[in-house]
Design a protein around this nucleic acid. Structure first.
Lengths: 126, 126
DNA sequence: CCGTATCCCAGTGGATACTG
DNA sequence: CAGTATCCACTGGGATACGG
């Protein structure tokens, strides 16, 4: 594993980190891992994200080929977002992160005030 | 898995993301997963991090119980950093991230200019 | 050796209003 | 419905110098 880092000037692990960097990206990917969603459906699931930010993160994910954006030229407009093949490979990582986070909470239930309101709507994962 | 999100106002997955948020944190954790390291040894492995940032990220990781900091009151001073039990549970996540990153590179070798110089020293993972 | 102290900048993220 | 357009605040990250 460690050898692959020498291939070029970019560490795969750090690249993966960068691809997921963005306050709402993993949530978006999480929801899209379930099924194709329209803009509004994502928005409803994430009430705390402003339209601007949601659009921005969606475009960034699209640019990185983790999701696709399909526009139906209808009136009113309809836009569907779908996770890609490569994007779907992130799901197990998110699952491990979820598992780790749960274990972490078990250990440090008391001192999580720092991270409270990590999300104001806990239903996001449901 | 999804049910655990209802326990409190904090999604474990997002918490995990927050714990790892910080430009150099996964690299630090990666190096420490190998063995205990002194401040200077970490610094040598990550030439691009300023002392201030390295200290900051180390303190943050310590505050989050992912690493420990042991100070030897000698002259000159000696400080050792060690990954914790819970911190070690992140290693498989980092390994999956590495694996994903490698697969990603295989697919999009061409258009990675955006992420080039993700690290200026590719040896970081070695 | 292992840090602090200042100062600084860019980019991320947000509030609010508007539109094809 | 699915976005843009402005304007703004914050903070993560950095350069440089100094200190116990």
């Amino acid at each position: 594993m460690r050898e692959t880092c020498r291939q070029d000037d970019l560490c795969p692990m750090v690249l993966a980190y960068k691809l997921l960097s963005g306050k709402w990206k993993i949530m978006i990917l999480w929801f899209l891992s379930d099924r194709v969603l329209r803009y509004n459906e994502i928005s409803k699931r994430m009430p705390d994200v402003t339209q601007k930010m949601l659009t921005k993160q969606l475009r960034s994910l699209e640019e990185d080929h983790l999701i696709t954006r399909r526009v139906y030229p209808t009136v009113p407009p309809k836009v569907e977002y779908e996770i890609t093949e490569i994007g779907r490979q992130i799901v197990p990582i998110m699952e491990m992160m979820h598992k780790f986070g749960a274990a972490y909470i078990d250990n440090f239930r008391d001192e999580l005030s720092k991270h409270k309101n990590t999300t104001e709507n806990p239903e996001i994962c449901n």
